[in-house]
Design a protein around this nucleic acid. Structure first.
Lengths: 135, 135
DNA sequence: TTTCACTTTAGAATAATTATAAACTATAAA
DNA sequence: TTTATAGTTTATAATTATTCTAAAGTGAAA
């Protein structure tokens, strides 16, 4: 994803392309493969990579802004930290609690044959499958 | 579950049946239906119910001891708090993020037809399905 | 009974996240 | 091109969930 597209991406979702947002967006979206991270890990990687220090609060703000805009998804995983995923399409995850690592599973690689209906007046928003791994 | 069984349950898993553990165990296991809770909600309910106050740290200790003993399961759910479940059999969940409520789904009510194989040297521990609800 | 390893407890410590409020800045309008 | 302002960043404080600590308490084996 090129810089011009990054700017478009931000502007089209009503986010001013500030220096910090552009830097974070470039880091997150200028890559081929899906990227999973926590705010803590992202902070470390950004600190390492760039000269200008971005405040931790800004990273929280930005990640949540990107999530709200649909540019990131939040992954439900046991544990204390919240994981985010640059893959925003509908998909599933392996979770390796040993290394705290998430691995994407394409939604076509899991087929669910039978599913219960939603309770009383509720609708099904989505179905998430976690395959927990062990050594 | 009767008191004598509570005592057996504790002793058989190497847990001394102290006043606090028995009280918590009675509260959790003397019921027909599955019970989902967080440490916070359990603390509130116990405080309301009983005269003698149990320290929050004891509730944490006890819940984890019960989990280690296999009397409770921990549920992976988005959010900051950790949920526990008195249903320790293999099963799935509806999750209503609106009310932060979990509802059990019997493992027979979901049939998964196709599943990817585990990556490089890892094995599949278990598969958990979350059906997220919306109004 | 006595003893001691196991427990409980209050409160401190830690860790992740959110709130606050002042300084800064992108951008729309003059 | 300046100006005004709403949106943004920042350091720091506050909050929340959880774990740690160390002292006091207690089941149960001998």
């Amino acid at each position: 994803m090129k810089k011009i597209d990054i700017l478009k991406k931000l502007r089209s979702s009503g986010l001013r392309p500030t220096k910090q947002r552009v830097e974070i967006a470039k880091f997150l979206f200028e890559r081929e493969k899906t990227f999973h991270f926590t705010v803590e890990s992202l902070n470390k990687l950004l600190t390492k990579k760039s000269a200008s220090k971005i405040a931790l609060a800004t990273i929280y703000n930005t990640v949540h802004a990107f999530k709200t805009a649909g540019h990131l998804s939040e992954v439900e995983v046991r544990g204390n930290k919240t994981y985010f995923d640059t893959n925003v399409s509908n998909h599933h995850h392996f979770y390796d609690s040993d290394t705290s690592e998430l691995i994407d599973i394409d939604s076509n690689d899991i087929i669910i044959q039978k599913i219960p209906k939603a309770p009383n007046g509720k609708k099904i928003k989505n179905v998430e499958v976690f395959i927990n791994l062990i050594n």
